[in-house]
Each structure stands twice: as structure tokens, then as C-alpha cells.
Design a protein around this nucleic acid. Structure first.
Lengths: 230, 230, 230, 230
DNA sequence: CATGAATGAGGCTTCATTCAT
DNA sequence: GATGAATGAAGCCTCATTCAT
């Protein structure tokens, strides 16, 4: 699926605070994001350097620093954008949704397939984003010299999204005592299973997530519904 | 809980292949493991260097290379050991278990609390190990210069463990079509929830895992049983 | 004390050669000088960058280059201006002075207290200027890529000032063989003592120069007079 | 003059705390000190980099970091050593001195000529050291991120030395009210005059300090004695 | 078995400046 | 006259590792 974000939405999102200037405004800015996503996904955050990105896109390291104060800010930017986009997609989906059950089904479908993010003429590959988020999220917490506020900002969008799902669970069953734990589980399982299917296939029956997303999503839906409805 | 491993078991495990010599045999070897676990957990794998470990335990970097060929091998060693210990604990638990249902309950309990690993006079903190495993596991796949065999080795113990759980699920319900996906989910959820309770508490109802482990474990048990039994 | 310089005087001084255009003519120009003085004093010449100045005064780096060809020229500008101002103040003082003894006393008083420089509506803090001059002067000699002429220019004003003092010493005692050495000593001692009182108080009895300037100035006067008069 | 320091004295001095290991023990260590002194003197502290030193002595940058934690520590090391050596030389001179008047004369002579420092087979050029001390001393105070204790350490040796001179002044005239200011003046004047003779010769009558040290030293002696003796 | 010394490669970042608008 | 964008060069420092003892 494609999630379309327009520039105004971006400007008003917590995500924009992680960049020094709007990267969608210049060719260089867009190249940085595209290339960073590919490199972080393939080599990992630590092995991805501004220098390497620069070589690929044909700009010197120094130029990247005009867009992102540091490599860490760039990572937070990408993750924040990811959750902002998912949150938006979910909001859009809710509009055409009649029951909370249908909403839950929709969000699981949303999470079980990679979602490309489209901003202006940039298309950010959802598959890569998935992998980055699952592998690098935890690392964001470890960088001690980062001020807490930034961290909070980075996960604001994730929290907003998770909170909506938890709310939905309570609509289905107001007595469900662990709506938040279940919401975060709904978010994590597809990412994990997708990851396993790639790297440790013996740990899952699902194949690469894009080929049979429905299978994983339906399994997850049953798993969740069985618990909530009771 | 404490999982006790004796040296002979260690020697025969895939874990031992990651070290150049048996670290339990010398004070220095044991210090390295202890200290590495603490440092990787607190600062992250990339920020943990042989130099830092050396300073803490009062040995020069060069000495560590007599035990571990590289920093990466040390990480694989720790992770491999973790899954080996859990696998062993599960085997021990199975001995006194009458039904597959009880076995599933037991493994969930096992996973929902931190498990210290005890080898000779070394006690490795289960809480720290949990965090390392959840944060650093994915990274193991990304280090390209490592030969595939090593990687496979590193996850042999995890696979063995997951496989036992999947098998158990099939004992309860031979028709359950996603036993492996469910097994890996059982392994991951407690780690994730424990992680959230520490770093993003708004994403879960559970508090620090050691304080009310039962709550998380019971929730997870219901979640799983509802799906399997049906 | 305040030393008032009018724009015409500035235009005819060697100082003006260090700027590309008259900085007193625009708000931006005056901001640059003010801010540079503060930043060089607090962080040192090397840590003071056009970028930092730009951020503080809200202009991009490029704008500063319309006023000063380089950071080094800006430093020379400030130091040159300082000695030009002191020289002028001394000239003004001499007008109302009857004896060379009184003149010597006056110049020591002048040097023993910080002197603000006032140009149009700009007031440059004398205390900061003192510190810059003592700390950064020597550095001007070391910057090899600067052509000699500029260097000479930068110290023209200092030399003119020192020369007047030396001349005055000879008026008191025409046989004094080291008038120039004594003149430069008169200039340096108050700067040094002021510096010590701030940073290494155990090396002097004087407190921060502004609080009891008289004490230092009187001590210095005795020291000098004892030598000259003999 | 040559001031000879033996390794034991060095080890017990505050100076040794600025190095990670004893630089006199290896050829590399001695090369670093020698070369750093030359480079700092000729190009200034900021322009002197570990890389440049490394190129000159044929070792990679990284090797220098085994001896000095940072460039700043290296500067503090050199300055601290300088004052430690002068302090020692003064102590040695005092042994053969009968009157405080003679002592004062001796210390002024000591300060008015460059003093080489000899440690084992290393000879550190006193002329260069003089220049470094006068130009870079003030800078040591500006590096804000340096902990205060280190700074104190760096100037411990200077303070010890200055304090001895002040004490001596009081022996000559117990009522002299500014013994400390006079002591620091005695230390600074020869450095300043030597500096002027090199870079701004019109500010002094003295030529390069080594050629006619006696002249400057005698002038200074008179200047001081006239004041102290009352 | 342990360690002190050394190092090539590279990471992250800033600087001083230019140029097109 | 002012500025937004860009960049080559370099700075400081750390890392993972090797080697000789």
C-alpha cells in the first residue's frame, strides 16, 4: 500500500523537528532520505555513515550535515516518519469503517503488509522501513547523550498510533484489561514474523511478508479476536 | 530463576565454538563474560569495546583476544549461551510435566521472568541477558563479513528451543497450522513487553517484568491457549 | 572609562583597512563587532566561528564575509581598534597635562582600568577587549599565511601608543636607557595582573581589576617612577 | 643553562599526571615531546595537530594517543614541565646562596635566559619553551570542557615557583605589600621582552634574549630592587 | 598465558569559504 | 546588500586488531 503524506502534514508533524531543514524541498534532501533508508536497512545503522551515503548520492559528507544535525537525528527522523505515516493511514481507514471489529481487522491488515510512504515525488519503500523499525528501534533508547525530549518526540507518533489501537480494543470489549499490551503486540508481531521469514525461516511458517501477507494477517486477526471477544 | 549449566554441557554445546578457549576456566575468562554482558546491555554492542572491557577488568585489550577472536564472536557467544540455557531449562521442566498444556504453561512462565545462568561460580544476570537478546539479536544478521556458518551456529540453540515449543503446540492441537510462528511469538512477546515496560511504559500495562511477572505470563498464557485449543 | 571615537577618525585610522566596508554604517556590521568581541573573549579566537556569530545575530555566515575578508582580519581589526582607541585617549589626556610625570601617571591610570570604546551608538566593553588583547595578541604573529604588511598594520596603532609612552619617559629622564622596554612593560603589567586576578589569583594581591584599579595602578606607578627618576 | 631532571623526580611531579604513560621510556614518547615543542612554538597550539607531529616523527596519529589523552593534555604537560623545571633550578640555586638579595638576583638571571630541560637523553630547547609558555598559557584557561582539577594541576608547578619568589621578596623587605604581584611580574617581564624582541622589536631595546641576556636581566634586577629595598 | 606497544583505517563532525541568486 | 545552498579539506579521536616479548 502507499501512504500519501503532503508537505503541510509533514511540517506540522513531530517528525519535522528532527531535520534542520525540510528535506523534501531539495533534490539533495530527498536523496539523503532515500539512500539512508536503503543503507540502514542493508548494513545497519552503525555501518551506515554520512560518508557512505554521500558517496552514493555524489555529495560530500558535509552537505548532509545541512539537513541532519547528526546521524542519530536522521535515524529518529525515519522512525518518527514511519509511525506518523502508519498513524495517518489508520486514521484514513477509520473513516470508512463501521464497526470496531472491522477497524481492528483493518489495522492488522495495514501492519501485515509493507506500506510505502509517498511524499511529493519521493516514494519510500515500506519493506525497508519495516526492517529498519524492527531492528533499530531499540537502539534509539541506548544513545545516552541524546536528550530525553528528543526521544519522546521520536516515539510520539508511535505512541499516538498504539493508543488508537488500544482504544479500539476497548470499544470491542470494554473490560479487556490489557488493551495497551495487546496493541503493542499487534504492532510488533507482523514486524517480527516478517523478520523471521527473512532471516530465520525455520521460526515461522510465513514466507517473505509481501508474498502472502494475507496468511499472516489472518492468523494474527484470529489470535487477537479470540482473546478480545471473550 | 537460576539455570545451572555444568562445564561438560557447555563443552558439548554449539556455544563453545564461539570462544577460542573455555572462558570458565580462568578468572580472566569469567570476568570478560560478566563485564561484556553488563557493558553491552548498558551501552549497546557497538559502544562496548574490548578496550572498555579491559579497563574495567584491569586487563589489556590484547588479552581478550586470547578468548574471543573478535567482538562479534563474543556477542554470538553470549546469545548462543542464552538460548542454550533456556533450552536446557525447558528440557528440565519437561521431565516433571504431565501434559503438553502444562508444558506450554511452564515455558511461558520460563520466558516471562528473567533467568540467571549459573556456570561454576559465575552467575550471569538474566535481566541483562534478556535485554541484550532483544536488542542485539537482529544485528547478528547484518554483519556481512561473518561467514554464514557462524551465524547458523549462533542460532542453532535458539532454533532448537523454538522447535521444542512448536512441537509441544502440535501435541495440544495436531491441526494447528502455524505452530512455528506461534512458538516464536511466545518467545518474543515477553521480551518485547519487558522492553516496553522499561522504555515506553505507555505501550503496556505491565510493570518492570520482575515485579509482576505472573501478570504478563498469565495474560500470554490465555492469549496462546485461546488460539491453540480452538 | 569611555573612549569616544568618531567615524571620521576611524576612516583615517589603520584599523579601517582590516574591514571590507565600514561596519559602523549598518546594524549588521555593528552586531558583528559586538558579538565577535563577546565570543572571542568567552570562547577564544579559534572557537569563535563566523557560523556561531551568525547564529547569535541571526545572519548567515556568508553575510559576515561582506564585512571581513576572513576571521583573521576580524581579529586584527579588533586589536588594532583597541590600540587606536588607547592611543587617542592618551593624546586627549596629554592636552590637559602639565608635566611628563603627570602624563606617566595618567597613562598608567588609563591602562589600569578597562576602557570602553564608543563609536556612534556602539559601546564596546573594555573588560572584554582587555582580555582579548592579552590572550590573542601573540597569536597574530603566528598566522603564517597572512602577509607581513597586514601584520605591521595591525600593530601600527600599538606601536604608536608605546612610542608615545617611551617618549614621555625620556622627557622625565633623558638618560634612561631602556625607555621602550619600560613602555611596553607599562602596557603589559596591568593586563597581566588583571588576567592573574581572574584566573590565577594566588599570583597577585590585586582583585578583579575594576574593583580596586587604583591599588594596581598606584603600585605600578611607584615601580616605574622609582626606576625612571633615579 | 641546562636544568637536569631525573626520571624519579618526574614521576613524582604533578606533570606526570598529564601523560597516559611515561614518555621518557620510549623513543616514540621522547619524539612526541620534542616535536610537539617545535611545532607548537612555530605554528601555535591550534595549528599543531597530532597528525602533523605524527608525520614528522613517522608514526600514525593513533600512536600519540597512547601517550596523551588529547592535544590539550599535551600542552598542559609541556607547560607544567616547564614550571617544574624552573622551580627545581631555583631550589638548586638557593642552596649555594647566602642572602635573599643574591637569591633574587639569581632567579632573575634564571628567568632572563632560556633554560633547556634535560631528562635522560632528551634535551628540550629552552628558547622554544619560553615562547610556548608566554603565548599559550592564557589559552589553557579557555578550554571550558577541561575539568578544573586538571587546570589546577597544570599550574601547581607555576604557583609553587612564584610562591618561592614572593617569599624571597618578603625576606628582603617584610613590609612589602605586593610580594605576589611582584613575583609574577618578575616571571612575566623576561618572557614578554623576549617575545617583543622577536616579533615587535620596536617595543624593546633588548635583542634576541640569548645574545644579551645580561642586559635585560640587569635592567630587571634594578627595576625590582629599587622597589623592594625602599 | 598474558601483556605492552603499536597502528591503519575510518568515524563523526566542523570550518572557512565560494557561488548563484 | 544580503542570503541559502553547497563543499573540500581537515580536525580530533576511537576501534579492532596484530605482533613481539
Amino acid at each position: 500500500m502507499n501512504i500519501i503524506i503532503n508537505v503541510e502534514e509533514y511540517d506540522n508533524s513531530p517528525t519535522s523537528a528532527f531535520a534542520l531543514r525540510n528535506p523534501w524541498k531539495t533534490k539533495l534532501g530527498k536523496h539523503i532520505i532515500q539512500c539512508a533508508i536503503q543503507l540502514i536497512e542493508s548494513d545497519g545503522y552503525e555501518q551506515c555513515t554520512f560518508k557512505k551515503i554521500g558517496i552514493i548520492i555524489g555529495s560530500p559528507e558535509a552537505s548532509l550535515y545541512r539537513y541532519f544535525e547528526s546521524k542519530h537525528k536522521l535515524l529518529l527522523f525515519i522512525m518518527s516518519l514511519y509511525w506518523f505515516a502508519l498513524d495517518k493511514a489508520y486514521k484514513d481507514v477509520l473513516i470508512h469503517t463501521k464497526s470496531p471489529e472491522e477497524a481492528l481487522k483493518n489495522v492488522i491488515n495495514l501492519l501485515s503488509a509493507p506500506n510505502n510512504i509517498v511524499i511529493q515525488d519521493s516514494i519510500l519503500n515500506g519493506d525497508l522501513l519495516n526492517n529498519i523499525v524492527i531492528i533499530e528501534s531499540s537502539k534509539a533508547f541506548l544513545t545516552k547523550h541524546v536528550d530525553e525530549d528528543n526521544l519522546e518526540g521520536a516515539f510520539l507518533t508511535l505512541k499516538a498510533f498504539a493508543s488508537k489501537i488500544a482504544h479500539n480494543i476497548l470499544l470491542i470489549n470494554p473490560d479487556y484489561p490489557y488493551s495497551r499490551a495487546l496493541a503493542s503486540t499487534i504492532i510488533e508481531i507482523p514486524l517480527q514474523q516478517s523478520h523471521f521469514s527473512k532471516h530465520l525461516p525455520s521460526l515461522t511458517e510465513f514466507k517473505a511478508i509481501n508474498s502472502n501477507k494475507n496468511e499472516c494477517s489472518e492468523w494474527l486477526l484470529h489470535l487477537i479476536m479470540n482473546t478480545v471477544k471473550k
